[in-house]
Design a protein around this nucleic acid. Structure first.
Lengths: 185, 185
DNA sequence: AGGGTTAGCTATTGCGATTAGCATAAAAGC
DNA sequence: GCTTTTATGCTAATCGCAATAGCTAACCCT
């Protein structure tokens, strides 16, 4: 009986593919095992349980998205960088709507997510740096940015907008709305 | 063996209490049955299955929230009404954080939710009426309002904001941000 | 080649959802 | 009031998924 050559990373790959295709609710150990060509209990050699697998998927998504955001702001600054960041956030979600549901909403409070969560926060902070906001104003600005970007993304990913008609325009407007609240540069 | 006197409405009451206390993930037929003092299969006399129960809970929450929103704008108009509406939305969520997760994000597309969903939409439209926006602008405005209010509420309900310090101030700012994008009255 | 480690397997348990079929309480008809 | 009907709750049983225990064989290293 030959080995399947699984690793934790491969299991997570398969899990993400499954989520992409059938939604987050379809992420079960049984389904992942089947796709890996392995019996379900075998997966326990690579992940400790289903909660662990979900966490690993979440971390992956968070990291992947952070990478996209970092790329989006590189070489840009000011309003240009912020707009690019917000578009990259939305783009990630429209490209992988099901994955977004796997991303933790409060990464900073869960040890497994903390590192990846802080990295994303740093990227956002970097984009806002040119404004030189003091501590409380920076916090409000980051919160507002998250509200907009997460609100839009989660509604869109869940099909909450009804007709997709003119969604790009709506997104453009909320970005302008946000930028308008930042002191002029 | 005396009857428990269950009705669909009572089952939903119990389900909501369960969600409030232990979170949406704890909503199982087994747990509801136990709280009703009844064997699990007995619940099938009142709901068709677990998905049905979840839907019924979602409809309840949607209706309840719509009621709060309607109350919040009654007797007000213009920016006052909109701000009151948005605060009422957030207040509902902070008072019943777990319930919010039971509310459908795209009510208009699911027959069971459509009626309650349209009612909520009407309330929001009513608040925006004084601006006399034309069709496309009204759509953008409603979307933006939902993005803000849902983004904030879902982040807060999920503990996504870290320190709750200054959250009221943040919310006030995003409301002002939204109102500023509406043409002056 | 041999010994330890590791990846996979089968068997089993437990829990929740769901269905089938039974019994009786409650309501409706006479 | 008594019968008939309906509806509510029950037990028993099945299915799917998570999880654990214990076995075996593949891989790695010397």
């Amino acid at each position: 009986m030959p080995r399947a050559g699984l690793t934790q990373a491969r299991v997570v790959d398969v899990a993400i593919a499954l989520v992409d295709e059938r939604g987050l609710a379809a992420l079960t150990l049984a389904a992942v095992a089947q796709r890996c060509g392995v019996a379900a209990p075998s997966l326990y050699k690579h992940v400790s349980n289903i909660a662990d697998l979900r966490t690993l998927v979440g971390v992956r998504v968070l990291q992947e998205m952070t990478g996209e955001l970092a790329t989006a702001i590189s070489g840009r600054s000011g309003a240009d960088a912020v707009a690019s960041l917000m578009w990259a956030y939305r783009d990630y979600v429209t490209e992988h709507p099901a994955r977004y549901a796997a991303m933790p909403v409060d990464p900073l409070h869960q040890p497994q997510f903390a590192k990846a969560g802080w990295r994303m926060l740093e990227v956002i902070q970097a984009a806002l740096r040119p404004w030189g906001l003091d501590e409380p104003n920076l916090i409000h600005a980051i919160r507002a940015a998250r509200v907009i970007v997460h609100g839009f993304a989660s509604l869109e990913a869940a099909g909450g907008f009804g007709l997709p008609h003119g969604l790009d325009e709506t997104f453009e407007r909320v970005i302008r709305m946000f930028l308008a609240t930042l002191p002029e540069l």
